[in-house]
Amino acid sequence: MQNTPNRNKPRSGKAGKGKQQPERSQTLIIPQISPEMLESARRAAMEGKTQHEIEQAAMEAEQRRQAETADAAQTAEPPRQPAPKPAAPRRKTRAEAEAELDQKIHDDHLWLNNPVMMRGLGLAPVIAAAYNWDNALMLCAAAVLLLTTTRVLAVAICHLTGNRFRPVIYAYSAAILYIPAYCILYAWFGTDLSVLGIYLPLLAVESAIIKRMESPELEPVGEALRRGINNTAGLCIAVLLVGFVRELLGAGTAFGHVIMEIAPLPIVQQPAGGFILLGLIAAAWTGIVNAYTHFKREEVRHQYAERRH
């Protein structure tokens, strides 16, 4: 009896091994083709170019498209981000609001803290010499040349000396600056300057100029310039106002032109009458300023009282 071969026995060799190995799947990678590449390839094919030339034209078209895209991205403006909202300002307290109001009143040398009407500075030249508009104008010009320059020069020297010898520095600064100031005034007004008499050189030691030396703190030069200009403007306003009123009431003229045939109060052109008139003007000025400042303080108090409720 012949042995029949076992059909179920697996075959050995390479064929058997080949059947046991799993079949591998192949992935087909298709390059991404842009519309520009297709259009360039189509044109090249219509022109009868070879396959290599068609591929080359398509690649050049793709490179041009990428370059144009990069240039457009560089030139494009970045998106604007919305501006951050400013933080809400902190509300002032009542004490801060009142302190700010007091500082504004102190710095207002034209009206609320006028050096002549409110502080009584520079009274001697105003009473004795400013009895008409022309004299008041000359005093105003002298104040412009002396007040601010003296203050700035004295403060600058005090910074160099460590704030020592302050009264001497202020007095000598005013005396030194008076010489060029007088030369300038004489060039402007000529011999009319002599009608001011001794009250013109008195400006060099007038309290409106050298009173600052009494303060213990030394202000910066820039602050001295700002305050000097404010004081000068306030003094000029007071001097010109008093000179105008005294000329109008004492001589019946204004700016040298006749306004009234008969002067109502000739006595106001004398020093005694000028003193009384200046006192009346200062009293009215002070009353109006006090009423205004009281109103502003009450306004601040009511405003912060409403916030509490």
Rank of each mutant, 00 (worst) to 15 (best):
L177W: 08
I179W: 14
P180Y: 02
P180D: 03
A181G: 05
A181L: 00
Y182S: 11
Y182P: 13
Y182L: 15
Y182K: 11
Y182E: 15
Y182N: 07
Y182Q: 06
C183A: 15
C183N: 13
L185I: 10
L185M: 09
A187I: 10
W188Y: 14
F189Q: 05
F189R: 02
F189M: 04
F189P: 07
G190R: 05
G190I: 04
T191Y: 15
T191P: 09
D192V: 10
L193K: 03
S194F: 10
S194T: 12
S194N: 14
S194R: 14
S194D: 10
V195Q: 10
V195E: 15
L196P: 04
L196K: 04
L196T: 11
G197K: 07
G197A: 08
G197I: 08
I198W: 07
Y199E: 07
Y199S: 05
L200H: 09
L200N: 01
L200D: 03
P201L: 02
P201G: 08
L203M: 15
L203C: 09
L203Q: 05
L203T: 06
L203G: 02
A204W: 04
A204V: 10
V205T: 10
V205R: 05
V205L: 03
E206F: 11
E206R: 00
S207T: 12
S207H: 13
S207Q: 11
A208Y: 06
I209L: 10
I209K: 06
K211G: 15
K211W: 07
K211C: 12
K211T: 11
K211L: 14
K211V: 04
R212S: 12
R212W: 13
M213Q: 09
M213D: 14
M213H: 03
S215R: 12
S215C: 13
S215N: 14
S215Q: 14
S215L: 09
P216C: 08
P216Y: 09
L218T: 03
L218S: 03
E219R: 05
E219A: 13
P220E: 09
V221D: 06
G222Q: 05
E223S: 15
A224F: 08
A224W: 02
A224T: 02
A224E: 08
A224Y: 04
R227W: 05
G228M: 06
G228E: 08
I229W: 01
I229E: 10
I229Y: 00
N230F: 12
N230Q: 15
N231C: 05
T232Q: 07
T232L: 00
T232W: 06
T232C: 06
T232H: 08
G234N: 10
G234D: 03
L235F: 13
L235P: 01
L235A: 14
L235Q: 01
C236Q: 07
C236K: 07
C236L: 00
C236F: 01
I237V: 11
A238E: 09
A238D: 09
A238N: 01
A238I: 02
V239R: 00
V239K: 02
L240D: 02
L240Y: 03
L240P: 02
L240H: 00
L241W: 00
V242M: 08
V242A: 01
G243H: 03
F244M: 05
F244L: 05
V245W: 00
V245G: 03
R246M: 02
E247N: 00
E247Y: 01
L248R: 00
L248G: 01
L249G: 00
L249W: 06
